[in-house]
Nucleic acid binder design. Sequence first.
RNA 1: GCUGGUGUAGCUCAACGGUAGAGCAACGCAUUCGUAAUGCGUAGGUUGUCCGUUCAACUCGGAUCACCAGCUCCA
Length: 639
Amino acid sequence: MKIKINIDGVKELDIAKGTTALEVFSGPNFQGNKRPIAARFNDTLIDLSSPIENEGTLNPVSFDDEEGKVVYWHSTSHIMAQAVKRLFPNVQLAIGPAISEGFYYDFFTKKTFTPEDLKNIETEMKKIIEENLPFERVEMSKDKANALFSKRKEKFKLELLDELTGNVSVYKNDEFIDLCRGSHVPSTGYIGVCKLLSVSGSYWRADEKRENLQRIYGISFETKEELEKHIQKLEEAKERDHRKIGKELDLFTINEKAGSGLILWHPKGATIRRIIEDFWKEEHLKNGYELVITPHIAKAGLWRTSGHYDYYLKNMYIFQKENEEYVIKPMNCPGHILIYKSKIHSYRELPIRYAELGTVVRDELSGVLHGMLRTREFTIDDAHIFCTEKQIDDEILGVLRFARKITKTFGFHKLGYELSVREPECKDKYAGCDEDWEKAEHSLKKALETENLEYKRMEGEAVFYGPKIDIQMYDALGRKWQGPTIQFDFNLPGRFGVTYIGKDGNPHNVIIIHRTVFGSIERFIGALIEHYKGDFPVWLAPVQVRIMTITDKLIDYAERVNEILKFHTIRTEVDKRNEKIDFKVREAEKEKIPYMAIIGAREEKENTVSIRERHRKNRGPLSIDNLVAEINEKQKKKI
RNA sequence: GCUGGUGUAGCUCAACGGUAGAGCAACGCAUUCGUAAUGCGUAGGUUGUCCGUUCAACUCGGAUCACCAGCUCCA
């Protein structure tokens, strides 16, 4: 019996019922650029070996496709598990999914995998790949699967089976069998090159009360070149590590005498931060925000009212003084609310926008601390917008535009958007009424659509007190960083009784919108360091010009130039050491200083400096006035 | 917090049961030099901390602190 299928909506083919996808793709009527490794039939991903029984649309999936990578890496994780089982028959299998870059597999075993083991596993994987074992999909009843995995003593697979209903599928290559939904590449030979990257601990089901597992991470590609490129990218990421650059460029340190997760900002790091904060304040003042300052500690009662004392207790630093319990603030919202509530507000005053670079302290688990990206004390560029229901559309749109503009100023040109909304099934676990949620969601959606932004809808990802937009920034390496957040709050207004007096003379509920652009200044600057690789644009560079003398005789002139530049708010340093100019240039290059102003007898005579610009080498002489104008122009343009 | 790894001079790293060594940086002297390293010299360490094993510990064991890779958490 013949059936019709579509390929890519372009070609229509008549095929015999039961023909496999692989047969279709290797037939004369199909030409693809990339080797298919799986197929998409209508909306489901299928194996190339799956027979096609119905009419529909069939498309090849290759490694270049997002879902192709998932298949490819997932298959490699099976191969790794197979290799591990061959070498260490006693380990039990947990799970082994593909992740955003590669795959992992969790194993239950008393032994710990050493780098030596990884090498051996890798070698065994290569053998399995050479054996070119087919990935066979077998569907069976749950009972049969239960019997199978009991016999193989795979207790984790049995636990997973417990939660499945109906028939299940297992994948088999030779002696190795795994409970798996699929899909997979046709055979192990499809995997080109693979590399195991690291081992770490994990828990079964991410539950620390459950079994401790050993997780092996790896990645695979079709060609050696792709693998090398990937490894290069990992090395590049290491080179950009803000902790490494922060030390090299003398930006910040973390000192165990002070405590972990606490940043000591050195002059150069503090300069970058100051420039960013000044810019932030200016922009907020220009955009209708008022700057406020709230205390670092407050009585426990305030945090009881806000609710933090209950649900955020384990993260709060609490201390006792004169029979009064105090909390070091982990959030800025209650303070802003107290300022709002210091008097009665008319509808005519709204919206009110309070902004603060508010430093908060949170006790984070020691294991999560990570340079500037995850600290125990950090400064949120926080703002709270108090507005009426009618104003939310304008406010959200305003915040979205504002946040986009600021992040772009820092060179994050590619942004991603996520709209987090309620889980539709369990509405009762959320604060606020249905109507609030719908209006808020509508307004967030509308803002994204007005700006023509593509976004991902994250069902059930909203926090309990309101829906939000999260913005991700993509850095120079294409990595994602958490950026601005725009968050509704249906919880605090009720808890604190935040109201305004309407036209009717009655109090009405205020809508509170939390928003932040940087999230945490520390994290943002950490991201910025990695994004720019420490090579900051002129407006952010802690030292913009290093003046360097060729001989001691030029020190006086160098000092004069220094004074002039400083007078024009240019950040300069003089290198008047008795060293050769090559040496001074080398150091300035290593320190990524954008302008080197070299001073010799000629320059003194002509009242100039000789400019060497980073990335542009020697530019020759330039008058002081022109140098000032050029740098000030860059400062103004924020480049 | 959990699993695994690491901790030696300001930095990067070496030594390894017999009481620590290099390069860079610092300091001193010489050199006064034109766009990525001038030469010579000096000084610098209770080997993260504490406890134990040993005739002897940087080296072995335990605890602790910190860091790293993950897990977990993230109102």
